[in-house]
Each structure stands twice: as structure tokens, then as C-alpha cells.
Amino acid sequence: MTKPLSGPRWPARWRWSEPMLTLTPNLSNPDESYARLIAAHEELSEAESHAMNARLVLILMNHIGDERVLAAAMAVARPER
């Protein structure tokens, strides 16, 4: 395959900066947030829980918006192969 003429056109303001994924503690009340996440799944079947997680990922993905942050987060989350 020949190379395409050019790669994706990143907006200029992205070109030289590092992705800004926050991996330092950022939750004001981690216990509370975690308990909320677990409680949100209460009384859901496994299938419903998976569907809810998927919706949650999409909602947070949209909230973050920044393509580089999402790519960095997916790289951190994915198990090493």
C-alpha cells in the first residue's frame, strides 16, 4: 500500500503539546465516587450493567472531547500484549 498523501489534520494548537490525561488523584471524594459507581449497577443484570457501562464510557468520552486525551486513556486502560 502506498502512503496516503497526508495524515489526519490536527488543529494547529494540538501539534506541539503533550496529551493532558490526568492520572494523578483528581477525585475530591474517591470513596464516595466509587460507591456511587457500584451502587449505580445495583439490581441490574450483567447484560444491563455492561450496557450501562458502555453508555457511561460514551458519555464521558463526549465530555472529555479531546482526541489525544481519549487515546492516552485507552492506552493506559488496555492490557499489555
Binding site: 455492561h50 450496557a51 458502555a54 453508555r55 460514551l58
Partner: peptide, 16 residues
């Protein structure tokens, strides 16, 4: 799973 999550959300959420 993700495809159907997008469709579920699309009914109410413009972003989806």
C-alpha cells in the same frame, strides 16, 4: 454492545 449503547443514547442525547 457499544453500537447499541450509541443507539440507546441517540434517542435522547444529541451528542450520540
Amino acid at each position: 454492545l457499544f453500537r447499541n449503547a450509541v443507539l440507546d443514547l441517540a434517542a435522547t442525547q444529541p451528542f450520540a
